[in-house]
Simulated scan of single mutants.
Amino acid sequence: MTIWLSLCGAVLVVAYLLGSTPTGYTVVKLLKGIDIREVGSGSTGATNVLRTLGKGPGAFVLLIDCLKGVLAIALVYWFFNFSPSQNLIPPEVNTELWQPWMVILTGLAAILGHSKSIFLGFTGGKSVATSLGILLAMNWQVGLATFGVFAIVMAISRIVSLSSIVGASAVSIFMTLLHQPLPYILFAVVGGLYVILRHRSNIERILAGTEPKLGQKLQVEQEQTVNSAS
């Protein structure tokens, strides 16, 4: 049992490291030579990359960050398929009960890694794209439904942060409606709350009416531009 628990712990560490991979930071550093954490919102996510470098790099970072979530969950599925052939699962372990809990723990590890990257001094993004990848790997219907909510709110408001917050709020509803296992519903609640908390500053700007729409710069960026020109 000790070996089995150690292997499960190793899976969680790998998932965290996957999430920690600093995609946005690396892309901006390579293409523009700057630290994206010192630009705009300070986030390393796709939205801040979009504001900094444009659509192409922003879309690339979005795709890779989403893929990090997919790979983290795929790792769990592979682990549970691989373990029986190597006699790694103790007789007392009920894999049907254990696997869903490992899925959500791995997902949370990847989300934490993206927002608190060990490679960036425990800073990072807001975990939206990585969370989407996790949802698609857990249940593609929930993932697509969540993305649909995000897209609808985006089309109406043109505000990425608001779309992300509403999407994160809707996940637990979709998990419940599609009769997903209890661990998945708990993940939706905990993960959704975490993503919303990561948007605290955005919520303040939304309430103040200063949150930029897609294509606009943050007010702090505009002020910095004015100050540097004066």
Rank of each mutant, 00 (worst) to 15 (best):
L30E: 01
V27D: 03
C66R: 02
C66A: 14
P181K: 08
C66I: 07
A46T: 10
N94D: 15
G191L: 03
K213V: 07
P181H: 07
V11H: 06
A110Y: 00
L75D: 06
P183N: 06
A72L: 11
V93S: 01
S157H: 01
D65C: 06
W101R: 09
I206W: 06
M1L: 12
G113N: 07
S41D: 06
G191M: 05
P91R: 13
L144M: 14
W98S: 02
R198T: 11
A145G: 01
K116R: 14
A72R: 07
V195L: 08
Q180E: 10
L30V: 09
N94T: 07
C66T: 15
G133Q: 09
S117G: 06
L197K: 09
S163F: 10
T176V: 11
G133L: 11
G121W: 00
S115F: 01
K68I: 11
L63T: 13
K217N: 13
L67S: 13
F119W: 14
E204A: 15
G125F: 03
V39A: 01
A72D: 08
L186K: 01
F147N: 02
I134P: 04
P212E: 07
V149Q: 12
A109K: 03
T2L: 13
E223C: 01
W78Q: 08
V76Q: 00
S20M: 04
L75N: 05
F119A: 11
L132Q: 11
N139P: 07
P22V: 03
G121I: 05
E211T: 05
